[in-house]
Write a protein that binds this DNA or RNA. Structure first.
Lengths: 327, 327
DNA sequence: AAGCATGATTTGATCGTTCAAATATGAGAT
DNA sequence: ATCTCATATTTGAACGATCAAATCATGCTT
């Protein structure tokens, strides 16, 4: 850490004005090529780095992206968010942004956090990582004309697509799992998921259902739902298998449920999220491309922050099936 | 987000000067109680929030704490860092700080990241979360007179304790595990750990060794080491059990190793880190108080940033044993 | 009642950058 | 040689806060 090189130091050393240095760095076109090179050399030589605080005060841009970090609730899939976070930090850095963390318990608290952050550090954008029905955060951000991307589709009844989002196609994931089971010869394939109402869960169930339907295979009565967890998954799967002894395979909405299902009987099982646990116990699971999802979020944000109006876009990424012993 | 309330707006509305508002907020003692209350009321009413960028420009303080985020390498213990990060964000928020993320691959890259960050967003402090032997980052930070705390003791040959750190007492953890096994009647207790040289690993091994020694039980030949992983753990444990058929319990340096060890034979097994995997498969494991560790880091940083010279301190926290089916 | 210390509040300057407007430079046209 | 027009560069102001020093009150001492 040198003794704080300012733009004035660079200007003096290069024999130009402050503004020319600024232009050489930020508006390359406006400065004569020769001058630009000279300035950049001096910048390099003195190790000049723009002072964000000063820039932010003038431009109103902080080059900060804020995202919430949660305690790993269910534990098993905790690392999903972790992987996303890492991808986001890397992608953001490449685009010249940094990631700022905050915590909040519930929508109201998160909105308070928005206000807090906007008053203080003024992040240029937010990334919302777990959208849900009737998400009040989204309407708040829209109402306040703020920039953000959600990782997760707008599940709610809100005016569709009024904001940019990135998501992983859960249905495609369970569809791939189901196809895999079909290819392995299974015909009676059940589904263990979450109670209806969660967009993510319904989506994953749909992938299983439509795949069976298009294969001309009946699926009536082959669904059980439970709140996420290993024990609950086992109970649900046991119930399903007892009622349908001919079922030979189970597609599950999460690795936790899948782990439970696996203990419920000698059937093929697939999970979702490709968590470390799945890797360790050899569970076939759907892998989300989180690094790409994060990169897409940043790409979308870049366009939005650049003021590109055509940027109100969506991206739906396709997950991949990681086949292991369990199926 | 109102239309940006500045300190001047508050001053006008409260009938005082800018500086008095500033003092009311930052130096409560210097302003008359009555005035202070009036100012704070107006602050509340207008929803004033200090603009960090402006403050930072003047004071040089950003109220930002930077920490690296890694891809979850080994996967199993990935969530450990995640939990720490969450704790850090919460503790930091309580102290009026925000957490800024960065990535870096290797010490040199991380030092470059330090320079980058210091030139731009100027974090007030760094938290280094995985210290290792001959950690060049630490000497760089010390040389440059920067504020930081490490989560992890200085294992190296560096002048001891020249910087504040927080750590969890790994030896105490394995000691607790060993005592638990002794209490359960086990007498021949092996250890599956990592190759010597890693401070963390050596520490965990020491806890096992000293506990057995003080119980007057021989431990010669009961150690096997392997790089972290389930398969490697299984192989190491199998080798140990084959050579010592009388061994009835194994203390392991990680949950990954423990999972492997469990598959190696019908013995009692304890792991380390209390990862989600351990929870799911019923593995007895040593739980690190990560939220407290994070809070301690922030507490230390607060004192350091306040300029308290007596703050060059250490904190060694004690982990707890979570007993499950495996032992 | 004048002098003084102490406390409370205000004033001007400043942090480092970029915006907006002003000025300088140079090539081409007349 | 003068004027235009475009390009290149410089100058002052401003962003919003805090620091340092100055000013204003107030009570106490002698």
């Amino acid at each position: 850490m040198a003794d704080k090189v300012t733009i004035a130091d660079v200007a003096r050393a290069a024999g130009v004005s402050r503004q020319t240095v600024s232009n050489a760095l930020n508006a390359p076109g406006v400065v004569r090529e020769e001058t630009r090179r000279r300035v950049l050399d001096v910048v390099e030589e003195l190790g000049y780095r723009v002072n964000q605080a000063a820039r932010q005060m003038r431009t109103g841009r902080s080059r900060l992206i804020a995202i919430r970090i949660d305690p790993d609730q269910d534990g098993v899939s905790g690392s999903v968010h972790d992987r996303f976070l890492h991808g986001l930090t890397e992608a953001a850095a490449k685009a010249g942004y940094r990631v700022l963390l905050y915590t909040a318990d519930g929508d109201a608290a998160e909105i308070a956090a928005f206000e807090d952050l906007l008053g203080a550090h003024e992040p240029d954008a937010f990334v919302l990582a777990s959208t849900h029905h009737g998400d009040r955060r989204i309407s708040w951000l829209l109402d306040n004309d703020l920039r953000f991307v959600t990782f997760g589709r707008p599940w709610s009844d809100l005016p569709n697509a009024r904001h940019p989002w990135v998501d992983v196609d859960g249905a495609a994931g369970t569809a791939a799992a189901t196809r895999h089971l079909l290819a392995a010869g299974h015909r009676r394939i059940g589904f263990v998921g979450w109670p209806p109402g969660s967009g993510v869960g319904d989506d994953r169930q749909a992938g299983w259902a439509t795949t069976l339907a298009s294969a001309g295979i009946a699926a009536a009565g082959l669904i059980r739902v439970a709140t996420d967890g290993v024990a609950t998954g086992e109970a649900a799967a046991r119930d399903l298998l007892t009622a349908n002894p001919d079922v030979t395979a189970l597609v599950c909405a999460s690795d936790s449920l899948a782990l439970g299902a696996r203990a419920a009987g000698p059937v093929a099982v697939t999970g979702f999220d490709d968590t470390p646990v799945a890797r360790v116990v050899g569970l076939t699971s759907v892998h989300q491309p989180l690094a790409e999802a994060a990169a897409s979020c940043v790409a979308l944000l870049e366009r939005i922050l650049a003021g590109d109006p055509s940027a109100r876009t969506h991206m739906l990424l396709t997950p991949s099936l990681i086949v292991r012993q369990s199926a």
